[in-house]
Design a protein around this nucleic acid. Structure first.
Length: 771
DNA sequence: CTCTCCCT
């Protein structure tokens, strides 16, 4: 039996009350049944790990003196006040009552009691002792960067510190309103609820939230937790963000497109609103805009540099220790390593659930099968194993099981994509297995038409740290990285910001709307590649959103009213002329909530059959419309029946519901814009397909010898196997997107007529390539 | 012969 000894003799000293030390065996017995079964194909070798003492270098030494910096802005940094806020060094007793008791009017006893209970918890947060330092820094500077580790309490507390900083006095022209942005809507919603309770009020009073489909903000609201995308929307209608006196950009390290747009815009807004003696259009003094950038990783210095070398405050976090292990050798067989590592943990380590990070559905389904199979071979004295896949497309029912505690004598193992990497906490996780891979979307610029790719990538160091941290939410944990520490050191520090790897047509259109005519000169934190910008300008010109001088047209402005990308917004406008807006709004809403069908790997044949029952001869767009129409024809009152209907037909009901919500919002926008959304093409698909073509003319291909050749771009594309057009032949197709994975696949495909292509303004040069 | 993940 060729396997090496497997030891954990360098574990951290567990706390005295912890049971780890009594139950940890020195070597891991590998169950004979497992070995026998797998040895037929491959020797079941134990994975060797090395413990590593990974340390994070703080950019700002904690003990005061900051002379170790070697960066070019060293002098600047030394001038500004870098603070280290650490709960241990401060006495906070007696301070907490002061800010809270001030507003003890007329609220219910219950809210007051809740607030008082929460006040004790708040006072124990690491950030609490830094309240005065933070207030002082914000008072003295236009912008402050706060580097707060996870568990520091920055997201709930910093906004409340600012509330007391900007009192509502008669001299303030408007009640100072503070926005706090979040990358995810669930985060914005739950934070608003929590902070409202800490303030002793209900959401919609002093504290509100603002996310798509759900804005609860009242006249008394001073603090708004919103998604960053929502604030970008507000920016389009109010380029000075005049109703806010402070904007807090949270999770800035994630570098969303929306966050990057906001950071660039806020700096410009400050130049105007914070200039000495600045007045608004009516001649009133401008209220200066305070900006607080909050980040959880060590890129704080970049934000500081961007905002004129503003001060950085450092806040200690509170996280349980996680022991990190790396493999001794690198291997690309990460699925195999993950299985082995899981069983090493399962057979030799104390209770505690396991979270395995994988790249996507394929990995997850494979691993789930293997672990289920092998765990059934285990000797009976081992615990049961409960395997739970977890990705964004997992049904709500199955997602709920991920968060429920495991039954008695059972160890949960959760197989997750990076959906589990940020913000959500799964209770009970003690062990993390990090395969070190993820899927990442990228954009390649190529002769006028960009290409999106979705490919397997090594994660970044910061993602690896996030994954590791998932093991230390409730107590000390363990993280097994299926790569060497050398590989870790070679990983990029952070993922490439989204703005550097996406199609920019939405961004460019939005910037044009807020008056940024020369996108090249906009102050991005990271400047996108000039070719990306050129491509987006060409696309927008082709859609009629920009004129020949690249200025925004009335069509472009109208397109921005819809929460859609420019091509889709153009399709809506086309549908108005072609009298099929009802149908198009349904189709576009569905297209943005894919997948509409579920496709479990072990039931492929059944799900394909179910899809076929909705098939429309013209392709995926009208097939999805069939699904929606059938679903909406079911009795509204019978939600259990509808759920069953969806399950039997492999329809993802959650995505269908989300599409309906998005569709209804677009209908409301139509009403506001004086557009009749009730026009329908009935059974005639031609107006619908032609409307789609008006926006997707770049995404077209014609059939030649059984292959589809792009009209623009000249590549050969294949129809994705999940498409209803897969295996069928059409003269010409249009598609929602191209994705380069194992092949160049067109997804969301419908068939169109040659003749329609030739009539498009884009191809009116007598249809080159057409017959 | 198969789709990382958010957001308006």
């Amino acid at each position: 039996m060729a396997y090496t000894k497997f030891t954990f003799d360098d574990d951290p000293q567990p706390p005295a009350q912890d049971s780890i030390k009594q139950t940890t065996p020195k070597t891991a017995p590998i169950p004979t049944a497992v070995l026998a079964e797998t040895e037929k194909q491959k020797a079941f070798k134990v994975v060797d790990f090395q413990a590593s003492d990974e340390e994070i270098d703080l950019p700002f030494p904690l003990g005061g003196g900051n002379s170790t910096s070697t960066s070019s802005n060293k002098r600047k940094r030394q001038e500004s006040a870098h603070l280290d806020i650490d709960a241990s060094g401060f006495e906070t007793v007696g301070k907490k009552g002061k800010t809270l008791s001030k507003r003890d009017h007329g609220e219910g006893k219950r809210l007051r009691e809740e607030r008082e209970r929460l006040a004790k918890e708040r006072a124990e947060l690491p950030i609490w002792s830094g309240q005065e330092a933070i207030q002082k820094a914000v008072k003295e500077n236009d912008t402050v960067v706060i580097l707060g580790e996870t568990g520091s309490g920055k997201t709930t507390q910093v906004p409340q510190f600012l509330l007391t900083l900007f009192p509502n006095t008669p001299s303030t022209p408007r009640p100072p309103r503070i926005a706090v942005t979040q990358p995810r809507r669930v985060a914005a919603l739950s934070l608003a609820t929590r902070v409202a309770a800490e303030q002793g009020t209900k959401v919609g009073q002093r504290v509100g939230h603002s996310v798509r489909f759900d804005t609860v903000v009242g006249p008394a609201t001073r603090l708004v937790y919103c998604t960053d995308g929502m604030l970008v929307r507000e920016l389009l209608g109010d380029p000075m963000l005049s109703q806010y006196s402070a904007i807090i950009i949270d999770e800035a390290h994630e570098r969303n497109i929306s966050t990057d747009i906001l950071l660039g815009s806020l700096r410009e807004i400050q130049k105007i609103r914070n200039a000495p003696g600045a007045t608004d259009d009516s001649g009133n003094p401008q209220v200066p805009l305070k900006v607080i950038v909050m980040s959880a990783t060590l890129d704080a210095e970049r934000f500081s540099t961007f905002f004129n070398h503003c001060p950085i405050l450092y806040v200690r976090g509170r996280q349980h220790p996680v022991k990190i292990y790396h493999t001794e050798e690198d291997s690309d067989q990460y699925e195999d390593l993950a299985v082995r590592t899981f069983f090493q943990i399962h057979t030799a380590r104390p209770d505690g659930d396991v979270l395995i990070f994988l790249s996507g559905q394929e990995d997850i389904d494979n691993l789930a099968q293997q672990i289920k199979f092998l765990s059934n071979q285990l000797e009976r004295h081992y615990q049961n194993v409960l395997v739970l896949p977890f990705m964004a497309s997992t049904s709500p029912l199955d997602q709920a099981r991920v968060f429920q505690p495991a039954p008695a004598r059972t160890r949960k193992v959760i197989l997750a994509t990076n959906v589990a990497e940020t913000s959500i906490t799964i209770p009970g996780i003690k062990y993390v297995i990090d395969t070190g891979v993820c899927k990442e979307k990228n954009y390649l610029s190529r002769r006028g038409t960009g290409i999106e790719t979705l490919s397997l990538k090594l994660v970044s160091q910061s993602a690896a740290q996030q994954r590791t941290g998932r093991a230390g939410r409730e107590g000390p944990g363990f993280c097994y990285r299926l790569y060497t520490s050398q590989t870790y050191k070679k990983m990029s520090a952070a993922p490439l910001p989204e703005i550097l790897r996406t199609n920019l047509s939405s961004v460019v259109l939005q910037l044009k709307e807020i008056g940024v005519d020369d996108v090249q000169s906009f102050g991005f934190l990271d400047m996108p590649h000039p070719d990306f910008i050129t491509e987006s300008l060409m696309t927008l010109y082709g859609l009629g959103a920009l004129d020949k001088t690249l200025h925004l047209t009335p069509t472009g402005s109208r397109m921005l009213k819809f929460p859609l990308d420019p091509a889709q917004a153009r399709i809506v406008l086309a549908s108005i002329d072609r009298s099929c807006t009802l149908d198009i709004l349904d189709i576009l809403a569905l297209a943005n909530e894919t997948p509409i069908f579920t496709d479990p790997i072990d039931k492929r044949a059944e799900s394909a059959e179910a899809r076929a029952s909705f098939r429309h001869r013209d392709g995926d767009h009208l097939t999805m419309l069939n699904v929606l129409r059938s679903y909406e024809a079911l009795p509204k009152s019978d939600s259990a029946g509808r759920k069953l209907w969806c399950r039997d037909r492999f329809v993802n009901e959650r995505n269908l519901k989300r599409a309906i919500q998005a569709r209804d919002q677009m209908r409301e926008i139509c009403v506001r814009e004086n557009v009749d959304w009730k026009t329908t093409a009935g059974d005639d698909s031609e107006p619908i397909l032609r409307s789609l073509l008006d926006g997707l003319f770049m995404n077209t291909a014609i059939e030649r010898d059984g292959e589809y050749k792009q009209m623009v771009g000249n590549s050969i594309v294949k129809i994705h196997p999940s498409s209803t057009m897969f295996g069928r032949r059409a003269n010409a197709i249009l598609y929602g997107e191209i994705v380069h994975t194992s092949n160049t696949y067109a997804r969301s495909v419908s068939q169109v007529q040659y003749a329609w292509l030739a009539e498009l303004p884009m191809f009116s040069f007598a249809g080159a390539g057409l017959e």
